[in-house]
Amino acid sequence: MAVEVRIPTILRSFTGGEKTVSAEGTSLQSVIASLDASYPGIGDRLLDDSGLRRFVNIYLNDEDVRFLDGLSTPVADNDSITILPAVAGG
């Protein structure tokens, strides 16, 4: 299962500057594990002991995964994942 993952500017030091990378997995958890295998250390910036880090938002096809099944959210072939830091609006 290949999915496209969009990487925010502040995490591109892990991906050699790449904006979009490919990862494998059938759940968000396994996609992040696959990302971390390709780009060691990135997993740590996304997750902490309690799960997704507080200021990290991850969207599966534009929907916030916290309102899906979190890290257990199923991921299908050709899905798109976007990682963004939480910022202020208003």
């Binding site: 500017t9 502040i10 910036r45 880090r53 200021f55 990290v56 830091p85 939480a86 910022v87």
Partner: peptide, 18 residues
Amino acid sequence: RYGELVYGLRNIDEGFIP
């Protein structure tokens, strides 16, 4: 979802949640 400039944080721990 804004352009990249807007997410120009120095660190992912500097994010903001109202």
